[in-house]
Every structure is written in structure tokens, then in C-alpha cells.
Design a protein around this nucleic acid. Structure first.
Length: 586
RNA sequence: GUGCCCGUAGCUCAGGCGGAUAGAGCAUCGGCCUUCUAAGCCGAGGGUCGCAGGUUCGAGUCCUGCCGGGCACGCCA
């Protein structure tokens, strides 16, 4: 509807070009918006106000000329000049009837559009290190990324969802050695647990896995051999030096293959856990991209070669540096350390170059807010490798604080008592969990109240929306119980009977859905959809209380049922994008 | 110190490519179940949009400065 009105305005403007206007204004000047007040019509445009100065006319005068030049259209009952020079559009009943019909015709696909023009977008999200279970912060990133991807796909982007697995580097060694030490404990060895090791219970589970997998305790070594001549651990010594020495010792005692076995098994177990956790949460990926595999394929060397060919690298102090400052970063960055090791940054830019080379024109990285320093660096890297720097977008997801009522739950990785996503989902349920994560803007810190999310009351917005869906289902059951059936065609044909103010309000809200989806996609703002669904549910509940749907008059009854079924359809479509179920009963 | 995010009703937050009288939920107060699910609806009160300037026909929205809060600034991963 909105786009059609914009086209009408553009047509009017080009008719005026050469006379009233010196030239046809740019497409971006033509903006049509929903009105806030019913007395201002259904849609409104401020083009005349924007163009008045250039046209050397008063806004109202120009608006009148534009209105006079508007082609006639079946959607528009009348267009008039109002206020300072706004052009207000009043739609015909047929316009709404047509949109109602469209909802029924498109069903689950209503709201989809071609806005994205099949542009290939890679949405990378979660990408948590596989060194422990996901926590509530990852949950927010998962909900955001999955929903954003759903919405982008709905408006016509060719979307791929990816999880980047940081399975190379020291933190994997630390995980492996943590699991191994727990395994040795299980075998009956007595040795201290490293200060810098991973302490969570899941590491003990990994040790159990190791024990059942390792035939005849083949990975067991005497504690004395493990600990011989190791430096002191914290607090007396350096915990970093200690764990590195312990890793080296493990490699030495188990051999490269044995150590690799421990590492692989731990990694696989963690990834399986993460994959299942996310799967239960309704979050799936098209690709799990392994850093280790990427590095083994030569991607990092390739990226470094590209940088070298552009003369963006230099040596200083034995290390290889990238001239990031030439691309807007605050300092140059090391890509290969003095010891010959490539940095995490090197593999990061290699990964992003790889994304581009796989054919994705737009890269969206969903990251935690604490990663914001990383954005300028990676963008600099992309630019230096000849990629357009604005192809990378990084929505930063602010932190989640958990509350039980008014009491804040302390969190912190170090204390090993941080709340996992699984615990949260188990306690409040997947639906409430996803909705609560999504109802706040992602750049706003989130206070997640467990009591509220669990409450089955009017305080809880999830149920409010789901209830609207279930209520429609209930109406249909009542209908059947009275020996009646819906005649959708008859209802749509009688759409002109939907003249009550509540019916107009429901229609008006329903027809906004495609606009909401496009806006949510363009602003990367899934929460806009959550808010819209609450408004739609409100319009419906109000209507439900004000009017009886199952009336004697068959034409009116079918028209109302067609309207109410359309509400159910749009609620279901929206909830599906949010990853929230749409129940038939509550 | 430098950079990023944020500051809107008692509380939690929408509204941010400038647009007409700033909204919602919760909380508070008052109403509505013999009639399609009351997990619902209707009504009332509640605001210096952090502060000060600027840009213009028009600023919660854009610009500058300040105040306040959060986060980040490694040859860690």
C-alpha cells in the first residue's frame, strides 16, 4: 500500500517537473508515512515541505499542485493538503479489503517482499568459544541473530547463517589439559587443578567421556611424571606460565596424537552440547566454520599474501605488522608475532576475506558489546585487502542482567556460577526466553526478570500475543460446535461490512505488517516486530471484547471471521519469525 | 586519557534517515465475566525527552560542549 502511494507521488512530481518544479526530485525525497492521528488520514507525506524551498513556493501551494497532479487510483479515496503542507491520503474501503484478501491468499508468506533483491548476506552469530556451555549473554545473541536472519530472508535477502568455531589456539589447549587433569583425577591420580584451567562441571563430564573412550586408561600418566619440575602455579607463581608448561608436559607425555585425541574429543563434546542447546532454542546454522580448518586450508597465508601485495605489511621488532592506521584504525596491528605465531587478528581478517570470496556481498557479525574495539580493526583489514569496508556491519548486543524479582543475580565467568542458557531456558521456557531477549532493542542493556518471564499472568507480554492466536482458534472451535463453518470467499466478498471502528483499527494494524518487516530488516531491529505483534494483539483483544463474531447474519459473520483469521495468520507469521510458538489453546 | 553504546512517566522501555497534540507495558486508582477463553477489555492520574548552546518553517530525533552510567582499549584468545 505504502509503496503504491509513493509511486503515485513520484508520478505526480514528474508531471510537475519542468513547470512547477525545475526537475524531478530524487526518489529518496518521496516519503510516505503512516499517520499518528486518524483525522490525518491513513498515510501522509511531507514531500511538499521538503521541496518547497527549492521550488520557491509555499509548502501548501506546492502540496496543492502535487495533489492536483496525482493520478487517480483505486486505493485512494481522497488526498488533501493539511497543516503546514502535508499531503494526507484517505484510503478507500476497497484498499483494505484488497489487503485482507492478500493476507488470505498469501497465508504463511504474507509479509514477504523483494526488498533484499536476493543479495547474499552472511549472518555470523553466537560463535562462542567451544570451551564451555553457552551463557545467558550468548542466548541474547542467538535470539537476535536467528531472528534477524529470519526477517532478512522474509524480505528477500539470500541469507546464510554461520557459527565461527574458534577451535585453534591456546584456549583449546587449556580446555584439553583441563579435561585431562580431571580425567587423571578420575583415574585416581592426585594432582592439583591448574588455577587457569576451566573449572566448570562440564569439564568433569568431558573427563568421563575421555575415560569411557580411552581404552584401558591409555591416557593415564602418573601424577609425579605430570608434575615433575613444573613452575609454581598461582598464587605463588604465574598461572599463565604454569598452564603453558602443563600443556607442554601433556603433549610430551601423550605424544602429539594422544594430545590431539584429548583435544578433539573435548571439542566435539562441547560443540555437540552447544549445537543441541541452540537447536532446542530454535536456532540453527547453515554452516559451522572451523578456524582450524580455515587455517589448514591456507586462508591466513592467502590473506597475508594479499596484504603483502598491497604493501600493507612491515617488520618491526621481529614481528610482522599491518598498517591498520592507514585505514582508520587507531594503531597498527601485529599479524605474525615475534615467535612466528599468527595472531588472532590475522585469522580474523582472513576469515572475513574468505566470507567475501565465498560470494557474500554483505557481512553481518553479531557480537557482544565488549567486542566493539574489534570492528575498526577488521574493517581496516577488509579495506586493505581491497574490499569495501562498509560491507561489514556489526550489531553489538548489549549485556544481559538476570533478576529474580528485584534481586540481581550475580554473574561472572570466573566464579563458575554464571547462568547457562540451558538453565534459563529450562526455567522460563523457550518461548518466553526468545521473546524477552527480543523485546528490547539490542543496543540497550537487558534486564531479564525470571519471575516475570515465568509468570502466567497479564504481566507477561508473550502470553498476551499467543493468547490472541489461541483465542481465534477457540472462536473457530465454537463455530464448529454450533454446526457452522467459515466461508472465507463469502467473508472477503462482504469485507465492506467491516465498518465498526474496532474493525477499522484491526485492518489498519494488520496492513502495517509488511512495512514493519521491512523496517525491522533495514534497521536490523527485530524488536520492532515484537512490539508490533503486541499492538496487533491489543487491537484484536479490544475488538474481541467489543464485538461478537459469530452472529446470525452469515455475510457479516463470514466477514468478521475472515478478519479474525487474518489476525491469526499474521500473528503466527510474526511469532514464527521470532522463533516463538503460536499455540491453538492456552 | 582515547574510542563505542546509553540517559524519555514512579519502574522497565518504544519512538532516532527531523514533521502535526511525545507513546506502551508494569505499578497506582476506578469500572466490566448468565453471552465466541477475564492469560482479556474500558477509564483516570502521571513528562523541563540528562543539562546548555547551535542548525531551520519545524528538534525527543541532527551538530557541538558539559554532566552521569556501561563497555573496550595486548606480539591474550
Amino acid at each position: 500500500m505504502k509503496q503504491e502511494l509513493e509511486q503515485l507521488l513520484r508520478a505526480a512530481l514528474s508531471r510537475l517537473a519542468g513547470s512547477t518544479l525545475s526537475q524531478t526530485p530524487p526518489v529518496s525525497a518521496v516519503v510516505v508515512e503512516r499517520t499518528r492521528e486518524a483525522q490525518h488520514g491513513d498515510f501522509s507525506s511531507n514531500v511538499a515541505l521538503r521541496l518547497a524551498k527549492a521550488a520557491r513556493k509555499s509548502p501548501r501551494e506546492l502540496a496543492a499542485a502535487i495533489v492536483a497532479a496525482l493520478p487517480s487510483n483505486a486505493l485512494v479515496a481522497r488526498a488533501e493538503v493539511a497543516g503546514a503542507g502535508f499531503i494526507n491520503f484517505y484510503l478507500t474501503p476497497a484498499a483494505y479489503a484488497g489487503e485482507l484478501e492478500s493476507i488470505h491468499a498469501h497465508g504463511a508468506r504474507y509479509g514477504e517482499s523483494a526488498l533484499g533483491a536476493r543479495e547474499r548476506v552472511l549472518v555470523e552469530f553466537v560463535s562462542a568459544n567451544p570451551t564451555g556451555p553457552l551463557h545467558v549473554g550468548h542466548g541474547r545473541q542467538a535470539a537476535y541473530g536467528a531472528t534477524l536472519a529470519n526477517i532478512l530472508a522474509a524480505v528477500g535477502y539470500d541469507v546464510s547463517r554461520e557459527y565461527y568455531v574458534n577451535d585453534a589456539g591456546r584456549q583449546m589447549d587449556i580446555l584439553a589439559v583441563s579435561a585431562w587433569v580431571r580425567y587423571l583425577e578420575l583415574c585416581g591420580e592426585e594432582l592439583p587443578f591448574p588455577e587457569n584451567g576451566y573449572r566448570g562441571d562440564y569439564v568433569r563430564a568431558l573427563a568421563q567421556d575421555l575415560k569411557s573412550a580411552a581404552a584401558e586408561a591409555s591416557l593415564r600418566r602418573p601424577a609425579a611424571a605430570v608434575l615433575a619440575q613444573l613452575p609454581a602455579d598461582a598464587p605463588a607463581g604465574d598461572k599463565e606460565a604454569y598452564i603453558d608448561a602443563l600443556i607442554a608436559r601433556a603433549r610430551e607425555l601423550l605424544g602429539p596424537a594422544g594430545f590431539r585425541e584429548v583435544l578433539e574429543l573435548s571439542l566435539e563434546a562441547m560443540l555437540t552440547d552447544i549445537r543441541e542447546d541452540l537447536g532446542e532454542f530454535g536456532v540453527t546454522f547453515d554452516n559451522w566454520c572451523s578456524e582450524h580448518t580455515l587455517a589448514a586450508s591456507g586462508a591466513i597465508n592467502h590473506a597475508l599474501a594479499v596484504l603483502e601485495s598491497q604493501h600493507r605489511l612491515y617488520r618491526k621488532g621481529g614481528a610482522l605488522w599491518f598498517r591498520a592506521t592507514e585505514f582508520g584504525d587507531e594503531k597498527d596491528r601485529v599479524v605474525v608475532r615475534e615467535n612466528g605465531q599468527k595472531t588472532y587478528f590475522a585469522s580474523d581478517i582472513a576469515y572475513h576475506l574468505n566470507k567475501r570470496e565465498r560470494g557474500f556481498s554483505r557481512l553481518i557479525d553479531v557480537l557482544g558489546a565488549d567486542h566493539h574495539g574489534y570492528v575498526a580493526r577488521v574493517r581496516a583489514g577488509l579495506a586493505a585487502m581491497g574490499q569495501p569496508p562498509d560491507c561489514l556491519e556489526v550489531p553489538l548486543i548489549q549485556f544481559v542482567s538476570l533478576y529474580r524479582g528485584s534481586e540481581k543475580i550475580p554473574m561472572g565467568k570466573r566464579e563458575a556460577q554464571f547462568v547457562t542458557l540451558r538453565e534459563l531456558r529450562t526455567e522460563v521456557g523457550n518461548d518466553a526466553c526468545r521473546f524477552f531477549y527480543l523485546m528490547r532493542s539490542h543496543d540497550q542493556p537487558l534486564d531479564f526478570d525470571l519471575e516475570l518471564a515465568k509468570s502466567r499472568s497479564n504481566e507477561n507480554p508473550v502470553y498476551y500475543i499467543q493468547y490472541a492466536h489461541a483465542r481465534v482458534a477457540s472462536v473457530m472451535k465454537q463455530l464448529a460446535a454450533r454446526g457452522l463453518a467459515v466461508d472465507r470467499a463469502a467473508g472477503l466478498a462482504a469485507a465492506a461490512r467491516l465498518t465498526e471502528s474496532h474493525e477499522q483499527a484491526v485492518l489498519q494494524t494488520l496492513t502495517r505488517y509488511p512495512e514493519v518487516l521491512e523496517q525491522a530488516a533495514e534497521n536490523r531491529a527485530p524488536h520492532a516486530l515484537a512490539h508490533y505483534l503486541r499492538e496487533l494483539a491489543h487491537a484484536f483483544h479490544t475488538y474481541y471484547n467489543a464485538q461478537v463474531f459469530i452472529v446470525e447474519d452469515a455475510a457479516l459473520r463470514n466477514a468478521r471471521l475472515a478478519l479474525v483469521l487474518a489476525v491469526q495468520q499474521v500473528v503466527r507469521n510474526g511469532l514464527t519469525l521470532l522463533g516463538v510458538s503460536a499455540p491453538e489453546t492456552m
